[in-house]
Amino acid sequence: MGRAIVVDDHPAFRASARRLLELSGYEVVGEASDGASGLALAREHEPELVLLDITLPDMSGFDVADELAESPSSVVFVSSRDQNDLGRRARRSGALGFIPKDRLSEESLLAVVGSTR
């Protein structure tokens, strides 16, 4: 399905997300634990998908998504919080979609990515 990167500050979640993406047919070309590294990785590889956590240690996932707005990569937000708890930016962001981490699965990922294709 293409290449992907995972940007999240929790190693256990990154490992699980990598496996999920690979099972879904993605080639995971990199992982990053903060926003700046994620941006650098995305600019270097220009992946089709960026699985991006909203709460990062150095910057907000929304800011990372804004930086990538002009890139060919599609952004899917993930968070352990509910979308309703993330406020206006989550609703107004230009990302493909939002998946709560506890609902992340092949099906939910396909629903978000597929729904906008």
Partner: peptide, 10 residues
């Protein structure tokens, strides 16, 4: 919360 969602994903 992080541990639980990671577990759910696992």
């Amino acid at each position: 919360q992080q541990r639980l969602v990671a577990l759910a994903l696992e």
